[in-house]
Simulated scan of single mutants.
Amino acid sequence: MRVWLACFFVLFALAKLFDWVQELSLPLPIYILGGAFLAVASNYDKIVGSNFSDAISEAQLEQPQLNASSIEKVNT
């Protein structure tokens, strides 16, 4: 019974929220700013991720690569 009651209240709240959103009217600049925000947010990993991957690859190129023969030379 509790599940049915909880589902009823959740669906009722969603229906009222949907009605309220349909009546909401925003000016055009808000839509433009919202679209710009969504574009930046959806491409954030491409913008910032490329900078991090470039820095990591540069750091790996600067460090000498160790292999088994160079480790044996150091130990002897």
Rank of each mutant, 00 (worst) to 15 (best):
E72H: 07
I32N: 02
S69C: 02
Q22W: 04
E72R: 05
A55I: 00
Q65P: 02
L66D: 06
I47D: 01
S50A: 09
S57P: 05
V74T: 07
L33M: 08
V74P: 00
G34R: 06
N75L: 15
Q63N: 06
A39Y: 01
T76F: 04
F9E: 01
Y44E: 02
A41K: 13
W20S: 07
D54F: 06
K46N: 05
L11A: 15
N75Q: 05
G49W: 01
F9L: 15
Q22Y: 07
L17V: 11
L11W: 12
G34H: 08
A55T: 06
L11P: 11
S57I: 15
Y44W: 12
F12H: 08
I56M: 13
A6R: 07
L5Y: 10
N43F: 06
N51I: 01
L24W: 05
A6E: 02
L26R: 01
V74I: 10
E58K: 08
A55R: 15
Q63V: 15
Q60F: 14
F12N: 04
V10D: 12
F52C: 03
L38R: 08
I32D: 03
S50D: 11
W20Y: 08
E23K: 10
F52N: 12
I47W: 12
I56W: 13
F9M: 12
P27F: 05
I32P: 01
L11T: 14
L17P: 13
L38T: 12
S42A: 05
I30D: 00
A13Y: 11
N75V: 10
Q60T: 08
N43H: 08
L26S: 05
D19H: 13
N43C: 02
S53A: 06
D54A: 13
P27E: 02
I71G: 09
F9V: 12
R2C: 06
V3F: 09
A36Q: 04
F8T: 10
S25H: 04
L33G: 14
S57M: 15
A41I: 03
